[in-house]
Design a protein around this nucleic acid. Sequence first.
DNA 1: GATGGTCGTAACCGTAGTCGTTACGACATT
DNA 2: AATGTCGTAACGACTACGGTTACGACCATC
Lengths: 144, 144
Amino acid sequence: MSANSRLTIAAHALAWISLYQRQGHEVATSEQIATSANTNAVVIRRLLGELRRAGLVESRRGGGAGWSMARELESITLLDVYEAVEPGPLFAMHRATPDQECVVGYGIQPAMQGIYEVIEETLRRELARVTLEDVLRDILAAPR
Amino acid sequence: MSANSRLTIAAHALAWISLYQRQGHEVATSEQIATSANTNAVVIRRLLGELRRAGLVESRRGGGAGWSMARELESITLLDVYEAVEPGPLFAMHRATPDQECVVGYGIQPAMQGIYEVIEETLRRELARVTLEDVLRDILAAPR
DNA sequence: GATGGTCGTAACCGTAGTCGTTACGACATT
DNA sequence: AATGTCGTAACGACTACGGTTACGACCATC
């Protein structure tokens, strides 16, 4: 399926910002987050930009600028992050429409569409069960 | 996530072969299936090759060659097909290992790994609930 | 044993998505 | 005015997917 790391990095960034703020800081910079996630600051800004559009974080520009949470960590679920960062569906249909003269070619798409909807709804429900507060707790629970 | 159509095409092929056999034919050719799915026969052979490795179909070579089912349609679930054609995990970790000096960088991977395992297990359970007999029934139920 | 149809598979190409990187303007604090 | 950061475009490397061509391997049939 060619998995990507967008959900992972987004969760990483949100957890980092929250923890940093709980330590008394106002905002976190994309550079700091990128260092923690071992990636490039532009990658972080791009991802956080999508999370901002979803209303999960805020950004300030100018001097002393950076990112801060727009919502409480316990009110954000992995589904919120997933939807902000992963638009499309999980499974794709045929590239070219199948042969409509064939019984299978005619019925396959509605059939699979219905099945996929149920499956993706289950995935969403499962993602919605995990809050970012849960994630941060798990992070801090790592043995040291 | 850049979804692909492998599961859809594989289900299409299996449904087509089964229906064709139920109509009294011995084997189905990749050319016939490709016509129904509106794709190239090589694409079908590649996919069916993976399904053969998983023990779902058989192939005969030589004259009058083609593909036939190796198992009953009602004993095959979408999970069987999914596992045969989609190897990797759904979500990826960081490309480069995050900063192990950072609390978040240190704990994020075990945390997300545990969460992802639960989610993917749920997905598998859901895929396992749908048999290809269900799929074929839905296909034939399409209004005409 | 020659023929013909089909599988099995390699090779290549176009397209798209992800990620990293550089660059630079916009902006606000100082 | 200077500085630090965001916002975003642009580009390249890499990978995956799907389509296509090509050709050898195989076997039923004649």
